[in-house]
Protein backbone atom coordinates (compact mmCIF):
# COMPACT_ATOMS: atom_id res chain seq x y z
CA UNK A 1 0.00 0.00 0.00
CA UNK A 2 2.95 2.18 0.76
CA UNK A 3 4.20 1.83 -2.81
CA UNK A 4 0.85 2.51 -4.33
CA UNK A 5 0.55 5.74 -2.47
CA UNK A 6 3.93 6.85 -3.69
CA UNK A 7 2.96 6.22 -7.27
CA UNK A 8 -0.34 7.89 -6.98
CA UNK A 9 -0.47 11.02 -9.03
CA UNK A 10 -0.45 14.04 -6.80
CA UNK A 11 -4.03 15.18 -6.72
CA UNK A 12 -3.40 18.24 -4.66
CA UNK A 13 -4.37 21.21 -6.75
CA UNK A 14 -4.13 24.59 -5.22
CA UNK A 15 -7.37 26.32 -5.93
CA UNK A 16 -6.48 29.40 -7.90
CA UNK A 17 -8.96 32.20 -8.22
CA UNK A 18 -10.00 32.31 -11.82
CA UNK A 19 -10.06 35.60 -13.50
CA UNK A 20 -11.00 35.79 -17.09
CA UNK A 21 -9.84 38.95 -18.63
CA UNK A 22 -10.70 38.54 -22.29
CA UNK A 23 -13.74 37.43 -24.21
CA UNK A 24 -16.47 35.55 -22.47
CA UNK A 25 -17.46 32.68 -24.74
CA UNK A 26 -19.19 29.39 -24.06
CA UNK A 27 -16.75 27.48 -21.92
CA UNK A 28 -15.43 24.63 -24.12
CA UNK A 29 -15.11 26.85 -27.18
CA UNK A 30 -13.43 29.58 -25.17
CA UNK A 31 -11.01 27.09 -23.72
CA UNK A 32 -10.17 25.69 -27.13
CA UNK A 33 -9.58 29.15 -28.58
CA UNK A 34 -7.40 30.15 -25.66
CA UNK A 35 -5.15 27.15 -26.03
CA UNK A 36 -5.07 27.39 -29.81
CA UNK A 37 -3.94 31.03 -29.59
CA UNK A 38 -1.40 30.18 -26.93
CA UNK A 39 0.06 27.45 -29.13
CA UNK A 40 0.29 29.78 -32.13
CA UNK A 41 2.07 32.41 -30.03
CA UNK A 42 4.34 29.76 -28.57
CA UNK A 43 5.37 28.32 -31.91
CA UNK A 44 5.88 31.79 -33.40
CA UNK A 45 8.12 32.78 -30.48
CA UNK A 46 10.16 29.63 -30.22
CA UNK A 47 10.49 28.62 -33.87
CA UNK A 48 13.51 30.81 -34.83
CA UNK A 49 15.31 29.52 -31.76
CA UNK A 50 14.46 25.96 -32.74
CA UNK A 51 15.66 26.64 -36.26
CA UNK A 52 19.00 27.92 -35.01
CA UNK A 53 19.58 24.74 -33.01
CA UNK A 54 18.27 22.53 -35.81
CA UNK A 55 20.65 24.18 -38.30
CA UNK A 56 23.62 23.92 -35.97
CA UNK A 57 23.38 20.10 -35.78
CA UNK A 58 23.10 19.40 -39.51
CA UNK A 59 25.76 18.41 -42.00
CA UNK A 60 26.78 20.93 -44.66
CA UNK A 61 24.94 19.24 -47.52
CA UNK A 62 21.71 19.08 -45.55
CA UNK A 63 21.91 22.77 -44.65
CA UNK A 64 22.04 23.81 -48.29
CA UNK A 65 19.47 21.33 -49.48
CA UNK A 66 16.30 22.61 -51.13
CA UNK A 67 13.65 22.31 -49.87
CA UNK A 68 14.95 22.42 -46.29
CA UNK A 69 13.79 19.71 -43.85
CA UNK A 70 11.96 20.89 -40.78
CA UNK A 71 13.58 18.17 -38.70
CA UNK A 72 17.27 17.29 -39.24
CA UNK A 73 17.76 13.85 -40.80
CA UNK A 74 21.21 13.08 -39.54
CA UNK A 75 22.52 14.76 -36.41
CA UNK A 76 26.15 15.80 -36.38
CA UNK A 77 28.21 18.01 -34.09
CA UNK A 78 30.74 18.81 -36.78
CA UNK A 79 29.76 22.51 -36.78
CA UNK A 80 30.50 22.80 -33.08
CA UNK A 81 33.81 20.99 -33.53
CA UNK A 82 34.77 23.30 -36.41
CA UNK A 83 33.91 26.30 -34.29
CA UNK A 84 35.61 25.25 -31.07
CA UNK A 85 38.80 23.86 -32.58
CA UNK A 86 39.86 27.28 -33.82
CA UNK A 87 41.55 29.50 -31.22
CA UNK A 88 39.55 32.50 -32.46
CA UNK A 89 36.29 31.56 -30.85
CA UNK A 90 37.91 31.12 -27.43
CA UNK A 91 39.59 34.50 -27.83
CA UNK A 92 36.22 36.15 -28.55
CA UNK A 93 34.60 34.38 -25.60
CA UNK A 94 37.41 35.44 -23.28
CA UNK A 95 37.14 39.06 -24.45
CA UNK A 96 33.40 39.04 -23.85
CA UNK A 97 33.88 37.50 -20.42
CA UNK A 98 36.52 40.02 -19.30
CA UNK A 99 34.45 42.93 -20.50
CA UNK A 100 31.22 41.65 -18.95
CA UNK A 101 32.78 41.01 -15.54
CA UNK A 102 34.51 44.41 -15.37
CA UNK A 103 31.48 46.40 -16.45
CA UNK A 104 29.18 44.50 -14.08
CA UNK A 105 31.38 44.97 -11.02
CA UNK A 106 31.90 48.67 -11.67
CA UNK A 107 28.24 49.41 -12.35
CA UNK A 108 26.97 47.49 -9.35
CA UNK A 109 29.41 49.14 -6.93
CA UNK A 110 28.63 52.63 -8.15
CA UNK A 111 24.89 52.18 -8.47
CA UNK A 112 24.41 50.49 -5.07
CA UNK A 113 25.96 53.39 -3.18
CA UNK A 114 24.25 56.06 -5.26
CA UNK A 115 20.87 54.32 -5.28
CA UNK A 116 20.98 53.82 -1.54
CA UNK A 117 21.90 57.43 -0.82
CA UNK A 118 19.16 58.71 -3.11
CA UNK A 119 16.48 56.52 -1.59
CA UNK A 120 17.55 56.99 2.03
CA UNK A 121 18.60 60.57 2.39
CA UNK A 122 17.12 63.92 1.65
CA UNK A 123 19.80 66.22 0.37
CA UNK A 124 20.18 68.92 -2.21
CA UNK A 125 19.40 67.29 -5.51
CA UNK A 126 17.98 64.07 -4.09
CA UNK A 127 14.86 64.62 -6.17
CA UNK A 128 16.47 65.90 -9.34
CA UNK A 129 19.37 63.47 -9.52
CA UNK A 130 17.31 60.34 -10.21
CA UNK A 131 15.47 62.12 -13.00
CA UNK A 132 18.79 63.26 -14.37
CA UNK A 133 19.87 59.61 -14.37
CA UNK A 134 16.77 58.56 -16.21
CA UNK A 135 17.33 61.20 -18.86
CA UNK A 136 20.87 59.89 -19.16
CA UNK A 137 19.45 56.58 -20.27
CA UNK A 138 17.39 58.04 -23.07
CA UNK A 139 20.14 59.49 -25.21
CA UNK A 140 20.34 57.84 -28.59
CA UNK A 141 23.57 55.87 -28.82
CA UNK A 142 24.17 57.29 -32.27
CA UNK A 143 24.60 60.77 -30.79
CA UNK A 144 27.17 59.55 -28.27
CA UNK A 145 28.94 57.37 -30.82
CA UNK A 146 30.73 60.25 -32.51
CA UNK A 147 32.07 61.98 -29.37
CA UNK A 148 33.16 58.60 -28.03
CA UNK A 149 34.98 57.90 -31.25
CA UNK A 150 36.73 61.27 -31.14
CA UNK A 151 37.63 60.87 -27.45
CA UNK A 152 38.84 57.29 -27.70
CA UNK A 153 40.89 58.22 -30.74
CA UNK A 154 42.39 61.14 -28.84
CA UNK A 155 43.26 58.96 -25.84
CA UNK A 156 44.60 56.19 -28.06
CA UNK A 157 41.98 53.81 -26.65
CA UNK A 158 40.40 52.88 -29.95
CA UNK A 159 40.58 49.18 -30.60
CA UNK A 160 40.99 48.21 -26.95
CA UNK A 161 38.76 46.37 -24.54
CA UNK A 162 39.34 48.81 -21.67
CA UNK A 163 38.31 51.64 -23.96
CA UNK A 164 34.90 50.01 -24.17
CA UNK A 165 34.37 50.05 -20.38
CA UNK A 166 33.55 53.78 -20.03
CA UNK A 167 31.48 53.56 -23.20
CA UNK A 168 29.40 50.73 -21.75
CA UNK A 169 29.02 52.52 -18.44
CA UNK A 170 27.42 55.41 -20.28
CA UNK A 171 24.75 53.11 -21.51
CA UNK A 172 24.23 51.02 -18.37
CA UNK A 173 24.94 53.13 -15.34
CA UNK A 174 22.12 55.70 -15.45
CA UNK A 175 19.42 53.04 -15.57
CA UNK A 176 21.23 50.96 -12.93
CA UNK A 177 21.15 53.89 -10.52
CA UNK A 178 17.52 54.55 -11.33
CA UNK A 179 16.52 50.92 -10.76
CA UNK A 180 18.63 50.60 -7.64
CA UNK A 181 16.99 53.68 -6.14
CA UNK A 182 13.65 52.04 -6.85
CA UNK A 183 14.68 48.86 -5.03
CA UNK A 184 16.18 50.66 -2.07
CA UNK A 185 13.10 52.82 -1.63
CA UNK A 186 11.10 49.64 -0.95
CA UNK A 187 13.35 48.63 1.95
CA UNK A 188 11.85 49.57 5.34
CA UNK A 189 14.42 51.96 6.73
CA UNK A 190 12.96 51.74 10.23
CA UNK A 191 15.03 48.56 10.49
CA UNK A 192 18.17 50.53 9.81
CA UNK A 193 17.23 53.02 12.52
CA UNK A 194 16.61 50.16 14.92
CA UNK A 195 20.03 48.70 14.15
CA UNK A 196 21.63 52.09 14.68
CA UNK A 197 19.89 52.39 18.06
CA UNK A 198 21.39 49.06 18.97
CA UNK A 199 24.79 50.57 18.41
CA UNK A 200 25.61 49.70 14.81
CA UNK A 201 27.62 52.19 12.83
CA UNK A 202 26.17 53.47 9.57
CA UNK A 203 28.37 51.08 7.69
CA UNK A 204 27.39 48.06 9.78
CA UNK A 205 23.71 48.90 9.50
CA UNK A 206 24.03 49.24 5.75
CA UNK A 207 26.11 46.12 5.28
CA UNK A 208 24.24 43.81 7.66
CA UNK A 209 20.67 45.03 7.52
CA UNK A 210 19.93 46.95 4.36
CA UNK A 211 22.07 45.17 1.82
CA UNK A 212 20.69 41.67 2.46
CA UNK A 213 17.16 42.99 2.01
CA UNK A 214 18.05 44.73 -1.23
CA UNK A 215 19.73 41.61 -2.61
CA UNK A 216 17.00 40.68 -5.14
CA UNK A 217 17.25 44.15 -6.60
CA UNK A 218 21.02 43.97 -6.79
CA UNK A 219 20.86 40.59 -8.47
CA UNK A 220 18.38 41.97 -10.99
CA UNK A 221 20.54 44.98 -11.81
CA UNK A 222 23.73 42.92 -12.05
CA UNK A 223 22.04 40.44 -14.35
CA UNK A 224 20.66 43.22 -16.50
CA UNK A 225 24.16 44.68 -16.93
CA UNK A 226 25.70 41.28 -17.64
CA UNK A 227 23.17 40.45 -20.31
CA UNK A 228 23.45 43.80 -22.04
CA UNK A 229 27.25 43.85 -22.01
CA UNK A 230 27.43 40.30 -23.28
CA UNK A 231 25.07 41.14 -26.15
CA UNK A 232 26.29 44.62 -27.09
CA UNK A 233 27.13 45.05 -30.74
CA UNK A 234 27.00 48.67 -31.95
CA UNK A 235 29.80 50.19 -29.88
CA UNK A 236 32.00 47.13 -30.09
CA UNK A 237 31.70 46.95 -33.85
CA UNK A 238 32.54 50.63 -34.21
CA UNK A 239 35.47 50.85 -31.80
CA UNK A 240 37.06 47.42 -32.11
CA UNK A 241 39.07 47.12 -35.29
CA UNK A 242 41.43 44.18 -34.94
CA UNK A 243 40.23 40.63 -35.09
CA UNK A 244 41.76 39.37 -31.87
CA UNK A 245 39.95 41.97 -29.76
CA UNK A 246 36.48 41.10 -31.00
CA UNK A 247 33.72 40.14 -28.60
CA UNK A 248 31.38 37.23 -29.28
CA UNK A 249 28.58 39.14 -31.06
CA UNK A 250 31.21 40.79 -33.23
CA UNK A 251 32.87 37.48 -33.95
CA UNK A 252 29.53 35.99 -34.95
CA UNK A 253 28.69 38.80 -37.34
CA UNK A 254 32.19 38.41 -38.78
CA UNK A 255 31.24 34.89 -39.88
CA UNK A 256 28.91 36.39 -42.48
CA UNK A 257 30.85 36.12 -45.71
CA UNK A 258 30.68 38.40 -48.70
CA UNK A 259 29.53 35.62 -51.03
CA UNK A 260 29.00 32.50 -48.97
CA UNK A 261 28.36 32.02 -45.29
CA UNK A 262 28.85 28.83 -43.33
CA UNK A 263 25.46 28.95 -41.62
CA UNK A 264 26.02 25.71 -39.70
CA UNK A 265 29.05 27.11 -37.87
CA UNK A 266 27.39 30.50 -37.46
CA UNK A 267 24.29 28.96 -35.86
CA UNK A 268 26.48 26.80 -33.59
CA UNK A 269 28.18 30.01 -32.47
CA UNK A 270 24.75 31.54 -31.91
CA UNK A 271 23.72 28.67 -29.67
CA UNK A 272 26.90 28.97 -27.62
CA UNK A 273 26.58 32.76 -27.34
CA UNK A 274 22.94 32.52 -26.28
CA UNK A 275 23.48 29.64 -23.83
CA UNK A 276 24.88 31.60 -20.83
CA UNK A 277 22.12 34.18 -21.17
CA UNK A 278 19.42 31.52 -21.30
CA UNK A 279 20.89 29.71 -18.30
CA UNK A 280 21.10 32.90 -16.25
CA UNK A 281 17.61 33.83 -17.30
CA UNK A 282 15.97 30.59 -16.35
CA UNK A 283 17.64 30.57 -12.95
CA UNK A 284 16.70 34.14 -12.19
CA UNK A 285 13.46 34.40 -14.12
CA UNK A 286 11.36 35.58 -11.21
CA UNK A 287 13.85 38.24 -10.06
CA UNK A 288 14.28 39.62 -13.53
CA UNK A 289 10.65 39.76 -14.41
CA UNK A 290 9.73 41.55 -11.21
CA UNK A 291 12.83 43.70 -11.59
CA UNK A 292 11.89 44.90 -15.02
CA UNK A 293 8.21 45.18 -14.29
CA UNK A 294 8.57 46.74 -10.87
CA UNK A 295 11.70 48.82 -11.36
CA UNK A 296 11.08 50.26 -14.79
CA UNK A 297 7.45 51.02 -14.31
CA UNK A 298 7.27 51.97 -10.68
CA UNK A 299 10.68 53.56 -10.31
Amino acid sequence: MQIASIHERPTKRVAMPRIRSGLSLPKPLGKFLTYATLWVAFVWSVFPFYWMIATSIRGKDEIFQRPPNLVPHAITFQNYIDLLVGAQFWRFALNSLILTISVTIISVLISVTAGYAMARHRFKGSVMLPLFMLYGQMFPPVLLLIPFYVQLRYLGWLDSLYGLIPVYLSYMLPLCVWLMRGFFSQVPFSLEDAARMDGCTRWQAFWKVILPMARPGIVAVATWVMIHTWNEFLYASTFILSEKKRTLPLGLSGLIGQYTTDWGVLMAGGVITAAPILIVFFFLQRHLVSGVGGGAVKG
Partner: peptide, 26 residues
Protein backbone atom coordinates in the same frame (compact mmCIF):
# COMPACT_ATOMS: atom_id res chain seq x y z
CA UNK B 1 8.43 30.88 -20.67
CA UNK B 2 8.21 30.01 -24.36
CA UNK B 3 6.78 33.37 -25.33
CA UNK B 4 9.63 35.12 -23.49
CA UNK B 5 12.27 33.34 -25.59
CA UNK B 6 12.65 36.14 -28.22
CA UNK B 7 13.32 38.64 -25.46
CA UNK B 8 16.04 36.46 -23.96
CA UNK B 9 17.94 35.48 -27.11
CA UNK B 10 20.81 37.94 -27.70
CA UNK B 11 19.88 40.47 -30.32
CA UNK B 12 22.78 39.70 -32.69
CA UNK B 13 22.06 35.98 -32.52
CA UNK B 14 18.36 36.55 -33.19
CA UNK B 15 18.98 38.85 -36.14
CA UNK B 16 21.46 36.49 -37.75
CA UNK B 17 19.06 33.58 -37.29
CA UNK B 18 16.31 35.53 -39.03
CA UNK B 19 18.68 36.47 -41.82
CA UNK B 20 19.32 32.78 -42.30
CA UNK B 21 15.59 31.98 -42.23
CA UNK B 22 15.02 34.62 -44.93
CA UNK B 23 17.68 33.06 -47.17
CA UNK B 24 16.49 33.45 -50.78
CA UNK B 25 17.48 29.97 -51.95
CA UNK B 26 17.19 27.62 -48.97
Amino acid sequence: SGILVPWVVPSVVAVLTWRWMYDPSV
